[in-house]
Design a protein around this nucleic acid. Structure first.
Lengths: 105, 105
DNA sequence: GCCTACACATAGACTGGCTACATGTAGCGA
DNA sequence: TCGCTACATGTAGCCAGTCTATGTGTAGGC
């Protein structure tokens, strides 16, 4: 998959993978790999800044855990994060309809 | 639709709209509006440079027409442009499967 | 004569994801 | 016990591609 195609959809992916569960950054990357059959292999330099951006936006909340001596910053969706996810899903449907309509015709 | 979501898919749109017909730049913009029910309203500053980029890549060929005193640069798909369009369509299907799979779950 | 639609084009800004780098722990095998 | 790999977080800077703003010029209607 071309690298740039992700642009504008990263937020949706991160919110979706945190829907209903708490994960730390590294686990988020693995979860996305898993859910996409390996197609999505996001570099840490993409994910970590994005998580902080989403936290600043109020869509995610984080807290530090220490699991077997390792520090982990665990993220979860906030209420407005859930709303944002719903909005992103709606936008995704519109987006695929529009582009798919042009490509498919 | 958020502006940035287009990124990485513009080439596919331009190739698709030129599939099987010749159009000049301005008409391409109108054709995309039409096919997307007004959702896609690309500025000329986006389309014209993109067309030249695709021509440099060998996917489009252009020639100057003069219609009722107006100069028009008319674009058409080259052979390798057709192949590129097919590849873009395949990539689009993969892309929507991957992202949709993560978002939908 | 003026305004709008048509038509092409470029310079520069902006933005967001990527590359590369930096740091450190846990656990395993040699 | 030494080194390697997997785990885990983070930042600085680059770069490509899209958008904004601007410029030029014609045709046709009012």
């Amino acid at each position: 998959m071309k690298a740039d195609t992700l642009r504008g959809h990263l937020d949706a992916l991160l919110l979706a993978v945190l829907d209903g569960r708490k994960l730390h950054g590294y686990a988020i990357i693995e979860a996305l790999q898993l859910r996409s059959d390996g197609a999505l292999d996001l570099p840490t330099g993409t994910v970590y800044p994005a998580l902080r951006r989403l936290e600043r936006a109020g869509w995610l909340a984080s807290e530090w855990d220490v699991v077997s001596g390792r520090k982990r910053r665990t993220y979860r969706l906030t209420r407005s994060g859930e709303q944002a996810l719903a909005a992103e899903r709606t936008e995704w449907r519109q987006f695929t309809t529009v582009i798919g309509g042009v490509l498919g015709a």
